[in-house]
């Protein structure tokens, strides 16, 4: 069992209108030094026997990303147990992931 974690973002230079809106919000809250906010998508795909990097790449190219406007990166890790976020920044969240075989 393996989980592929995929991050899809707009290519550099492609207008990210949503990112600009978020940047405006951050500036309004006083984080005026923040620049170049980019918004992307995060996907987890779990497969019983894992997936080769070539197959993962193909999946991104054909469907999960639009190669005309987006780029992607991914890594493979064992499935994680769901963690509960306590929502208070200083506290440790959840438990450390168990060491497992990575397929």
């Amino acid at each position: 069992m393996a989980t592929v974690r995929i991050i899809v973002t707009l290519k550099p230079g492609i207008l990210d209108a949503a990112g600009q809106a978020v940047q405006q919000g951050l500036h309004a809250l006083g984080y005026e030094a923040v620049t170049n906010v980019r918004i992307g998508r995060y996907l987890e795909v779990t497969l019983p026997d894992g997936l080769s990097p070539q197959e993962t790449n193909e999946m991104c190219e054909r469907f999960l990303a639009n190669p005309l406007i987006e780029e992607w990166r991914f890594d493979v890790s064992p499935p994680r147990t769901p963690r509960v976020s306590r929502g208070s920044g200083g506290e440790a969240r959840g438990t450390k992931p168990e060491a497992r075989d990575i397929h």
Binding site: I14, A17, Q20, A21, N66
Partner: peptide
């Protein structure tokens, strides 16, 4: 566009 039957892609409106 997404089916590849027409060329190009759509981005969010520039005016937010």
């Amino acid at each position: 566009l997404e089916a590849g039957m027409l060329p190009g892609a759509m981005l969010r409106n520039h005016v937010l």
